[in-house]
């Protein structure tokens, strides 16, 4: 992948299902019931069960590692969780599409990347940014 200023990195689409959230809860030890119980989620004013913000951020991490070609290339990663990713209780789940544009390449070789994450036609992250080390 050519990490030069202005380069658009190829979008990647991931499918998120309820089963993914259960598995992520177990692996991450984040058992907040808004990620598995519709009753609790709607009681706190959400439209239904939502993905862990950190699950969406992990998908950003997967895309970044794919673009950079090296898990250790990610030097910085930051996001705002601006809109919940609502995950329906069905077999199809919901799609999350991660895309990015290279904003700048520093003299040090550090590559600044602006990330966009879209689900259900809406941006779900704000100010999502990463710094990648060019290998």
């Amino acid at each position: 992948m050519e990490l030069v200023a202005g380069a658009e990195l190829p979008a990647r689409t991931f499918v998120v299902t309820r089963a993914d959230l259960v598995r992520y809860a177990g692996a991450s030890l984040d058992f907040n019931p808004i990620h598995w119980s519709d009753r609790v989620a709607t009681n706190v004013g959400l439209p239904g069960v939502i993905a862990h913000g950190m699950y969406t951020m992990a998908l950003v991490g997967r895309a970044l590692v794919g673009w950079a070609g090296d898990p250790a290339a990610v030097r910085e990663l930051s996001v705002r969780f601006t809109r919940p990713v609502v995950v329906p209780d069905d077999d199809n789940g919901v799609e999350v599409t991660i895309s990015a544009v290279v904003r700048a390449v520093a003299d040090t070789g550090d590559v600044q990347v602006d990330v966009t994450a879209v689900s259900g036609g809406e941006k779900v992250l704000g100010q999502a940014k990463a710094v990648l080390r060019r290998g």
Binding site: I34, G53, L77, S78, V79, F81
Partner: peptide, 11 residues
Amino acid sequence: RVVHAEQRFAY
């Protein structure tokens, strides 16, 4: 009633 608002990593 907590929601996760922001997250940042510097490695």
